Computed example of a mutant assay.
Amino acid sequence: MNNDNSDFSKGEFTSLLLASLRGFSQVVFIENVISGVLILLAITISSYKLGIISLLSSIVGTLIGKIGGAPKNSVNSGLFGYNSVLTGLAVSLFLTGPSRWGIALLGAMIAAIFTATMMHFLKNIDLPILTFPFIVLTWFVLLASYKLDVFHLSDSLVPQSLAYWQLNIAGELNWTAGFLNNIEQIFFLNHPISGVLLYSAIFVASWQLGLHAVIGSIIALLLSYVLGGEHALILGGLYGYNAILTCMAVSIVFSSQSNRFKIVSGILATCLTIPLTASFSTWLLPYGLPVLTMPFVVSTWLFLGARKMLPNL
């Protein structure tokens, strides 16, 4: 009997770990354990603390799905982990103090519950939830810091008045660094090896997704430069990560053979993320909030919703 229980426990742990690793890969629309390992490695190389909190966050989110009785295929494919991964990373980065790790894990748990809620409400209109739970939850946590003393906002998030804002487009551009930073910013990273690993994680699972990640990154670099974006933001990848996710989502992940112009609509949706990023950044400036992946969500929902009436898109 003890051996049976031991085998069962090992089997459950293995299943939980594999599902949690897929939670990492689901951030970039992939259900692949190897890709998940590469992404976790990319995070850990940039910061071992972020690697630990991201893994724990994915496990917490996956556990909520399992304990809550979600469909096994949804849990095992990592769909309850990816919003938790991003939430854990964001909260641990944008808060300070000894309580931030506990808040990050609690946020990861709530992110999984929020994910389940969004799955229920959006299934009737046939739209994916994407990273919307992560965005809203992270913004609420960060804003709570102004009224609740246990939340300590990082010094990197400083509210600024638009009345004194000045656009600064001076400085040289390192296109290679910008290209790598574009994909790193999906996971809040800043390490060249991490960028290489993240692109590799996508190509390992699908060369088509990998190609569109590259296309999205290049479009973001060129268009943000032509439109006169701040060079520091372009170099830091802050215009690129939403473009990468959008290009993959609209052109490949949520398209079908019936969408004859899916590549064109994917490129248009990708281009739209650049002014959306600038707009959301301006809107959130007085609150000191990061844009996160909201431009990706808005642009993707816009084009996927349009396909209900314009199926060729």
Rank of each mutant, 00 (worst) to 15 (best):
D4H: 06
N5P: 02
S6R: 06
K10F: 11
F13M: 14
S15M: 04
L18V: 12
A19R: 03
S20D: 11
G23W: 00
G23C: 06
S25W: 00
V27T: 11
V33R: 03
V33H: 01
V37N: 02
L41C: 12
I43R: 01
I43Q: 00
S46G: 14
Y48W: 13
Y48G: 03
Y48R: 10
G51C: 07
I52L: 12
L56A: 04
S58H: 04
I59C: 01
T62D: 04
L63E: 01
K66C: 11
G69Q: 12
K72M: 03
K72G: 04
G78L: 03
Y82R: 01
L86G: 02
L86E: 00
L86I: 08
L93G: 07
L93V: 15
T96I: 11
G97N: 07
P98S: 14
R100G: 04
R100S: 10
R100E: 07
G102N: 10
A104I: 11
A104D: 06
A104Y: 08
A104M: 05
L105N: 02
G107V: 14
G107K: 02
G107D: 05
I113N: 09
F114P: 05
M118E: 12
L122E: 09
L122S: 07
I129G: 06
L130D: 04
T131C: 05
I135Y: 00
V136F: 06
V136H: 00
T138P: 00
W139R: 09
K147I: 12
L148D: 07
D149Y: 15
V150S: 06
F151L: 14
L153G: 04
S154T: 13
S154G: 11
S154V: 10
S156C: 13
V158Y: 15
P159A: 12
P159Q: 11
S161K: 13
L162C: 14
A163Q: 12
Y164F: 13
Q166S: 14
Q166R: 13
G171A: 05
G178C: 02
N181I: 09
N181F: 04
L189R: 06
L189K: 11
H191A: 15
H191E: 15
S194F: 07
S194R: 08
V196L: 13
V196A: 07
S200R: 03
A201M: 05
I202Y: 01
Q208I: 15
Q208Y: 04
L211Y: 03
V214E: 02
I215E: 00
S217D: 05
S217I: 09
L221A: 06
L221Q: 07
L222G: 07
L222Q: 09
H231M: 13
G236R: 01
G236T: 12
G237S: 07
L238D: 01
M248D: 09
M248Y: 00
M248E: 03
S251K: 03
S251L: 03
S251C: 08
F254N: 08
S255H: 05
Q257P: 03
N259K: 04
K262V: 10
S265E: 09
G266P: 01
L268Q: 05
L268T: 08
C271S: 08
T273N: 03
A278Q: 07
S279I: 15
S281M: 09
S281N: 14
L284V: 09
L285P: 04
Y287N: 05
P290E: 02
P290R: 01
V291Y: 08
V291R: 05
P295Y: 11
F296S: 10
V298F: 10
F303E: 05
L304I: 13
L310R: 10
